[in-house]
């Protein structure tokens, strides 16, 4: 059974269409990257899936049921978002103690070890935490909840590089031991590129891409060489980006690049280089923006 199934999901806020006819399926035990620019609709999509808001039209199923006001399926989800607010009187230990009771799979030892790793002051008021500590608290809840479906919406704001690496390491280690479906929404694509198994790319409310990240990486290459040769080679593919420096051209191309294609490129004197996931995403989104 699919973990999440969306069909024609649309959400409008007045004049703004935050999600436009989005259709996709999340299957179990995989790490997804929900990528896209600011305002692409990532947070809105996660809010709909977690029942924090309702869609304007279309169909959405979470563990086979509609999520809005559905305790049974919502208790199997944790949604860690950068914008989460906490009551003023709460201390860190209060939040942890409440989370422990609310998430059925909560692992208290794991939570306490994360609190130690992140140096979180247990008795400090949450509103007095620094931005980074607030993120660390969110990360702690998100990991220790061990929810079958875990959302992290920009969970790293204010976290330093060491703490971010700690988060990625702990996530990967715990995921290996307790497989579950994780959705990472992030701007720091390169940092999580090795974690992400499948990419969902949103652009202005539309789902631009829904593909395994390996496939996506293989699909986009950077070809550089003499202008004429590159242009001849590019004709058979979708050109996402082209920049010329004198007689040399560097172009980002999308298509399938099998051995035959690679040999052809070599003969033309073209150098084919793989691009990073981040570059692929940037090229794909800018190409679409330019086409508009």
């Amino acid at each position: 059974m699919s973990v999440v199934a969306a069909a024609g999901l649309t959400k409008r806020f007045g004049e703004v269409t935050a999600l436009d006819d989005v259709t996709f399926t999340l299957t179990g035990d995989k790490i997804y990257g929900l990528l896209g620019r600011n305002g692409a609709g990532k947070t809105t999509l996660m809010q709909l899936i977690t029942g924090q808001n309702s869609g304007t039209s279309g169909d959405l199923m979470l563990f086979g049921e509609r999520p809005y006001e559905n305790e049974r399926v919502l208790s199997r989800v944790v949604f860690i978002k950068e914008s989460q607010t906490y009551p003023t009187a709460y201390q860190v230990r209060h939040v942890l103690s409440l989370a422990k009771r609310l998430f059925p799979n909560w692992d208290e030892d794991f939570a306490q070890s994360l609190v130690d790793d992140f140096d979180l002051p247990r008795k400090r008021k949450v509103r007095k935490l620094s931005r980074g500590m607030l993120s660390a608290l969110g990360v702690t809840i998100g990991l220790a909840a061990r929810a079958p479906l875990t959302f992290f919406d920009e969970p790293y704001l204010g976290l330093d590089a060491v703490a971010r690496q700690l988060f990625y390491d702990r996530l990967l280690a715990d995921y290996a031991e307790n497989p579950r479906t994780v959705v990472l929404s992030t701007h720091l694509i390169d940092e999580v590129a090795d974690l992400i198994e499948h990419v969902l790319l949103l652009d202005r409310g539309k789902l631009l891409l829904d593909a395994p990240s390996d496939e996506l990486r293989g699909e986009v290459v950077e070809a550089s060489g003499p202008a004429a040769a590159v242009d001849e080679f590019a004709a058979a593919h979708q050109a996402l980006h082209r920049e010329q420096l004198g007689g040399a051209v560097r172009a980002s191309l999308r298509g399938s690049f099998d051995d035959a294609e690679r040999t052809r490129a070599k003969k033309l004197g073209i150098d084919l280089a793989p691009v990073s996931l981040q570059q692929a995403v940037v090229r794909l989104t800018t190409e679409r923006t330019n086409a508009r």
């Binding site: 006001e69 949604f79 989460q84 998430f103």
Partner: peptide
């Protein structure tokens, strides 16, 4: 308690009901 706890509760997967 409504204006402060409600957004937190919703964030923790609690239903409005």
């Amino acid at each position: 308690s409504i204006s402060q706890v409600f957004p937190f509760a919703l964030g923790m997967g609690v239903t409005r009901r």
